[in-house]
């Protein structure tokens, strides 16, 4: 891991006076796919939001592409997918309009040239939403909505993707499309940090899992083996289930 794209050292943060991160160390290497796991309230979303500068730090340091976060300006290299239950604003907006806003980091003075519009079209193609470009985002299902948010992040053609629970509330068809999209991004050399509740269909892509509990890193290494509900229909990915070594890792970490 000679060339990290994200580095967190002894990061602490609080929300409303309550410590949420209590000294997190985390690195994401170039081309690596790292999953941030943990129960609700373990601090995984806060960790991600501290990286993008949405949560102020009380201690420690964060570097993005080797630059301290405070001085980092090359946001076009970062694609961010926020955690969302609803992304619609108070005014109608089309899928293309929402995805275009992801291109602003590359567009000078907010002018979208042909190359920018092409990039938006490619991002929509990647998530299989090109035919819905002119539809209002209000008319989409939760899964389609999430695909739009991911297209928005991809519109800037980022080298690093940061995703907060991209699979939450997403139907199976969309999950498969998202997994395929991510696979393509990783194949082209993108680095990914994603917050997940469970590994799900993304499991084969993940190089490393970092498990948080109470704002501390509990596990940093190969992803825990999937058991239980991952054996349900719909999880058609094939991987050897060995109940003996799977069970102990899973227990207490993710439930």
């Amino acid at each position: 891991m000679s060339d990290p794209v994200i580095t967190l050292r002894k990061v602490t943060a609080e929300l409303g006076g309550r410590p949420v991160l209590r000294g997190i160390d985390l690195t994401v290497g170039r081309g690596e796919v790292v999953a941030l796991l943990g129960a609700n309230g373990s601090g995984k979303s806060t960790a991600v939001r501290s990286i993008i500068g949405q949560v102020p730090l009380t201690g420690g340091e964060i570097e993005i592409f080797g630059t301290p976060r405070r001085r980092f300006r090359q946001w076009a290299r970062v694609g961010y997918v926020p955690q969302r239950t609803t992304a619609a604003g108070g005014v109608p907006a089309t899928v293309a309009e929402v995805v275009s806003s992801g291109r602003l980091s590359r567009a000078r003075f907010g002018l979208l040239r042909k190359a920018d519009r092409d990039a938006v079209g490619r991002a929509l193609d990647l998530v299989g939403m090109a035919d819905r470009a002119k539809d209002s985002v209000d008319a989409l299902s939760g899964g389609q909505h999430q695909r739009v948010l991911i297209a928005r992040a991809l519109a800037a053609e980022p080298e690093l993707l940061i995703m907060d629970e991209p699979m939450a509330g997403v139907d199976l068809a969309s999950q498969e499309i998202l997994a395929a999209t991510l696979r393509e991004q990783v194949a082209t050399g993108a680095s990914v940090l994603l917050v997940l509740h469970e590994l799900g269909p993304l499991e084969p892509l993940i190089d490393r899992a970092v498990v948080l509990r109470d704002g501390c890193v509990l596990h940093d290494g190969p992803p825990p083996k999937a058991v239980g509900q991952h054996a349900l229909p719909g999880h058609d990915h094939v991987h050897p289930h060995s109940a003996a070594d799977a069970e102990p890792i899973r227990t207490g970490l993710l439930s």
Binding site: W75, A76, P82, A87, G89, S101, S105, G110, L112, R152
Partner: peptide, 18 residues
């Protein structure tokens, strides 16, 4: 375009460097 992005999703707009 900038105002649209900020009004639609402030958190995302920040990560586009606006």
């Amino acid at each position: 375009r900038q105002l649209f992005a900020v009004s639609q999703d402030e958190e995302f707009a920040r990560v586009t460097g606006l």
